[in-house]
């Protein structure tokens, strides 16, 4: 993984307070909308996302996470389309054998706009939605509770396993494991690193299964939760608006 992992930023803004299901609906609609929308609407969407991020107080976090994701995508688009999509053959810039074509660059830029909306919507969702509350709200809407468990447990396990991977790396290097050298050696090094990681994970799985079983993971029947989530009129309005927006865009495309 490169850089800081993206994470939930605890706060109490209007965006944070939206019901998680509302945010799921908005997220899906934003992403669909980005692909469907004409350029002016896309620009409006980007502005709305940026506004929401600053309203939620996560503008900086979203920005910091978005740059390392978007820059390689943008560079890739510019190279793959800007240099090689000739279109009508209007050159924008020519340096030696390399020519930047106008049509390719336009395509790259507009596609980059779509991807930016995708990434911003995703990051805004992640930074303002408490994973546990998301799980609770989806369970209330009929998603099986065990799927919710898997989701939150996966998120929580990553840092734990990552720390272990770091310790394993230290321990094996201390025993002379060389992580440079030929590709074959490197793949063998991966075996020495990943095997203890998996075995350790399986040992802890056994403990965790027992602990969960004893604490009632497989009890059938009604459950309660520490968190009570309320749906406000704003939630309903936003859900309806988002769905109508996507329907309108689809209709516009079809006409």
């Amino acid at each position: 993984m490169n850089g800081e992992p993206v994470a939930y930023h605890p706060d109490d803004s209007v965006v944070h307070r939206l019901h998680p299901v509302t945010k799921v609906v908005l997220l899906v609609c934003c992403i669909l909308g980005a692909y469907l929308a004409p350029v002016p609407v896309l620009l409006a969407l980007l502005a709305a996302l940026a506004g929401a991020a600053s309203l939620a107080g996560v503008g900086r976090a979203v920005g910091r996470a978005a740059v390392p994701i978007l820059v390689p995508l943008g560079v890739g688009l510019l190279v793959i389309h800007g240099l090689f999509t000739k279109g009508a053959g209007v050159a924008l810039l020519a340096v030696g054998p390399v020519t930047l074509w106008r049509e390719g660059v336009l395509y790259a830029v507009s596609f980059f706009g779509v991807l930016t909306a995708f990434v911003l919507a995703g990051l805004l969702f992640v930074t303002t939605t408490h994973p546990k509350k998301l799980m609770v709200s989806l369970t209330e809407k009929g998603v099986p509770r065990k799927l919710g468990y898997v989701f939150v447990a996966s998120l929580q396990l990553v840092p734990d396993l990552q720390r272990r991977a770091g310790r394993i790396l230290d321990a094996q290097r201390s025993r002379g494991l060389d992580t440079s050298g030929s590709p074959r050696n490197r793949i063998l090094a991966l075996v020495a690193l990943l095997t203890p990681l998996l075995i350790g994970a399986l040992i802890s799985t056994r403990t965790r299964s027992l602990a969960l079983e004893a604490r009632g993971f497989s009890i059938e029947g009604p459950r309660s939760s520490l968190y009570s989530l309320v749906e406000s009129p704003l939630d309903h309005a936003l859900r309806v608006a988002a769905v109508l927006g996507v329907v309108a865009l689809v209709a516009w495309r079809l006409v």
């Binding site: 939150v152 802890s204 403990t207 965790r208 602990a211 969960l212 004893a214």
Partner: peptide, 16 residues
């Protein structure tokens, strides 16, 4: 009630 040797592994893993 049962408490295991490893402090971390016995937690549900799904609590924030």
């Amino acid at each position: 009630g049962y408490v295991f040797e490893n402090p971390f592994d016995q937690l549900t893993g799904a609590a924030t």
